[in-house]
Design a protein around this nucleic acid. Structure first.
Lengths: 121, 121
DNA sequence: TTATTAGTAGTAATCATTACTATTAAGGAG
DNA sequence: CTCCTTAATAGTAATGATTACTACTAATAA
């Protein structure tokens, strides 16, 4: 596996972001640095980085995946009104086996209405 | 909102299934009863039933949503080798508020390699 | 410096899901 | 029970996120 400036840029953008960006948003951000980067390159590297557990993919209700840095953040609150993602505290210990199934990763998503949207109602 | 045989059939199929079927699989099963049911009807009713919290949608890594009955099953183990979904025990108590955000629903997904696939390696 | 080949840019294709429209049928009023 | 209103459906077209493909480029190792 080779190190390319495209791959490094994509990882840097995700690691410096707090907004859980989509592939298209990452692509647009990339184009500020590499004006002719290809959308296919962004998708290929996102899949690669997810497989290598370097970033996290968040499946959204509208089927547009979002991406997040791999920190202590596996638990999200997803507002069904404004689609905002709020990071929640992570578990203290990460499970490695459940009922003889080997666990590599986990995610927990709560869905509802966030504080801001509740106040607007 | 009207009761139609199409809607009732879709809900019955999901409630009687243990396989977390996709929309296409539900559509094929429906066609055994209603030979000219439309795929759009299946999708529309699946969205409706999810919104009404009568069934659950499971977001899969390959972007093909699966559907599950609404029981005490919000926690799944998803095998990244065979794509099987294993139901796990649910939480004893369901959260209703987190940090002033109102919680309607939650899902927890563990990802890894299931017992069967581990034994094959 | 050069050779190998993994990675990229650009574009076309895929396919799950949604949108659209004429038609059908659920269910309430009479 | 019959008629009306209109929500829901069947059938089809459109959408759009993601993947596939191919000629070209550049990262690494000899």
């Amino acid at each position: 596996m080779r190190n390319t400036k495209q791959k490094e840029l994509i990882l840097t953008i995700i690691n410096q972001s707090y907004s859980h960006p989509t592939a298209i948003e990452i692509y647009k951000e990339c184009r500020k640095e590499i004006s002719n980067i290809s959308l296919g390159t962004v998708y290929r590297n996102l899949n690669l980085l997810v497989d290598q557990l370097q970033i996290k993919r968040i499946k959204m209700p509208n089927n547009v995946d979002r991406y997040d840095k791999m920190e202590n953040r596996h638990i999200h609150f997803i507002c069904t009104v404004c689609n905002k993602i709020i990071d929640l505290e992570d578990l203290k210990e990460h499970p490695t086996m459940i009922n003889e199934n080997k666990v590599f990763d986990y995610e927990m998503n709560f869905k509802g209405i966030c504080k801001n949207c509740l106040e607007k109602e």
